[in-house]
Design a protein around this nucleic acid. Structure first.
Lengths: 259, 259
DNA sequence: CGCGTGGTTGAGGCACTTCAAGGGCGGTGG
DNA sequence: CCACCGCCCTTGAAGTGCCTCAACCACGCG
């Protein structure tokens, strides 16, 4: 369902009325059905996003979590820093993603969450979250499913850095992002915006930015991708998936898109 | 279980009546208080464990989850295999650990769960789990907390393979296991049984078994650990923690053990 | 127009892998 | 009770994927 809504250019990022489709709703509906009422509630929650510049922390390690952040546009991440300054990125938050529902149960964050690109973000208070979980079983079910997928994605990332080569790691990440972004209508064919630096990619994949650069070069040379101006085009999706040994089952997409 | 049951020796692995203390109860109580009733319910659930030999799958990738497995003794793990046969272990299940509560929401497992050593395991049916979550809010709270800690541990493992050297990875893992096993009374001072092979360690840390062997050698030579016969003694805990840059905040231990 | 951030490229080094062979030890069967 | 077998640990030597250090370049922005 990439080119939905046709109307505007691109796909799904805009609707006839000119407003961007709500990525949270799109994401949850890719996992479980929602009622019209559910959708209305979610629509209301994600009104009035803040614009946060790139490189901004939403929550820092050690802070007491004060709410749940929902990303509507841009890319944010979970990360940890070592004393040396080395950074490991542990998850991407793309449009429709949010940080943990149950996080309020903890006294202090054990990692930080920050933006990689400029982002549209909504902060949802704990009261609202609790009301949501109490009064809307359909939404609750979908949110819990999404949490399971987040965990599965984290496991796949561990496989990525633990047991794949540099080329395979980056190829796998690109395949994953294609499906995740497609589910929220942020792709154009087999391409999408990837508004992050090569250093961010390095800290994601456990490599150095120099080696990421060379690896991207070799993926381009193989004719698998084109990447410039932070815009990625996958030229040979089948080839990229084969290289990465990509199996999308861990994303638990409803089946429409799933392989 | 190394040598408990020896009537009171060691620490907390045995009780006056000769039965091993229930690791699930110990674990949950390290996260949140439980009522006497809660404890009785959990005690009943974990009666009659099965003995499973080492190297046995409890659930395989692709299977539909049919219940929750609780480990009472031994070490099991979550893992994935690549087509090449390469294995990445993504989590250890030590006594008191269980596999996901909400897993029933998914149609198929996206990874496998198997034993590394011989294990005492209890299978808890989905009905029982659902009844537990419905009728025992105290237990539910503790279980949800434990799930958050599992996730945090997974993130820390990603940092481990992504941004630490071989020595640091193994040192970090040993520090983590000390706290996790201590919380369930399976340690003896700064030592514990580690009934897994060096190849298991390699697949955990993203290394080869050859390099794990050499790295263990260098940790021994530095006087940090002693390891033989699958029994680990940490000789210099402070040194090991410093080397690994170990910060136990992610385990969210109540505060008694936490740094 | 200058400056800063990020991308690109080269040369050299090292941490970890690969391949290969031997040794210890517990389990099992004759 | 001993001999054998298989699993695991151990060690050596050679190779390589990725890192480090160090430039230089491209571009957007003030």
């Amino acid at each position: 369902m990439q080119d939905n809504d046709t109307a505007g250019a691109e796909d799904g990022t805009s609707r006839p009325d000119g407003r961007a489709a709500n990525p949270l709703i799109l994401k949850l509906e890719s996992l479980a059905p929602l009622s019209a009422d559910d959708r209305a509630v979610l629509e209301r929650i994600s009104a009035k996003p803040h614009l946060v510049p790139a490189g901004t922390d939403l929550i820092g390690e050690g802070d007491k979590p004060d709410g749940v952040y929902l990303v509507l546009d841009g890319i944010a991440c979970r990360y940890k820093l070592r004393a040396s300054g080395a950074r490991q990125i542990m998850a991407y938050l793309v449009p429709g993603d949010y940080c943990d529902l149950d996080v309020a149960m903890l006294k202090a964050m054990d990692h930080s969450i920050g933006t990689l690109s400029a982002c549209h973000v909504v902060r949802i208070s704990l009261d609202v979250i609790q009301a949501l979980l109490r009064d809307h079983p359909g939404i609750t079910h979908a949110l819990r499913l999404a949490t399971l997928v987040d965990e599965a994605t984290l496991r796949e990332w561990l496989v990525n850095v633990g047991r794949r080569s540099a080329e395979e790691r980056i190829a796998h990440l690109m395949c994953e992002l294609l499906l995740r972004l497609r589910a929220v209508g942020r792709t154009a064919g087999d391409g999408y915006a990837l508004p992050i630096t090569q250093e961010d990619l390095a800290d994601t994949t456990g490599l150095t930015s120099v080696h990421v650069n060379r690896t991207l070069g070799s993926l381009k040379q193989r004719g698998l991708i084109a990447l410039s101006g932070r815009q990625l085009r996958i030229l040979d999706l089948a080839g990229l998936e084969t290289l990465a040994e990509f199996k999308p089952n861990y994303l638990h997409l409803g089946g429409r898109d799933a392989a």
